[in-house]
């Protein structure tokens, strides 16, 4: 795909919405189009966290294998959202599985490339961090609700 097309896709994805033009070229240098068929894994728990995925189409199940229960899906992620945060912090290992529930098209960002550029240009790093932190916060809030099991049976 032409670089211009990739830039347009990245610019239009909600995660990078409003990204300064000067950063766009830097970010796109780490990006490529990827596709996963239904059932394929974007990554597996324990593997190297080397990608950030911007989902363009399809739905991804984030799963953890629970003893005796098989894979338990704790979140699904769809078009306009991102998959993969573990690439931000050492030891850069995935802490869950990500499985394509249907055909998934995404932009895969090379995490090492992105981290390096963020380190080299802290303005870019700060911008990326400001985009990631609200997502982390939303997921933390969601996890709190799930842990509380609010739909579970109340005390009689």
């Amino acid at each position: 795909m032409a670089v211009e097309g990739l830039e347009r896709i990245v610019r239009d994805h909600p995660f990078f919405k409003g990204l300064d033009e000067s950063f766009l070229e830097l970010v796109c240098g780490c990006a490529q189009n990827v596709r996963f068929e239904a059932g394929a894994y974007l990554f597996r728990e324990g593997g190297p966290a080397d990608q950030l995925y911007l989902i363009r189409e399809g739905r991804v199940a984030l799963e953890i294998a629970a003893p005796g229960s098989g894979a338990v899906t704790f979140q699904t992620v769809s078009e306009g959202e991102i998959v993969g945060i573990s690439w931000l912090f050492p030891p850069y290992r995935w802490t869950y599985d990500a499985r394509a529930m249907e055909r998934v098209r995404a932009i895969g960002m090379d995490a090492t490339c992105l981290r390096t550029k963020c380190e080299a240009d802290h303005d870019l790093g700060y911008d990326v961090m400001k985009r990631l932190v609200p997502i982390l916060f939303q997921r933390l809030q969601a996890t709190r609700l799930q842990v509380l099991d609010i739909y579970g049976k109340p005390a009689a």
Partner: peptide, 19 residues
């Protein structure tokens, strides 16, 4: 519709309702 957790047989949304 979304559910808090599901197994692989569920093809719908998983996550809290505000999502």
């Amino acid at each position: 519709v979304t559910v808090d957790h599901a197994d692989e047989s569920w093809h719908g949304q998983v996550g809290v309702v505000t999502t």
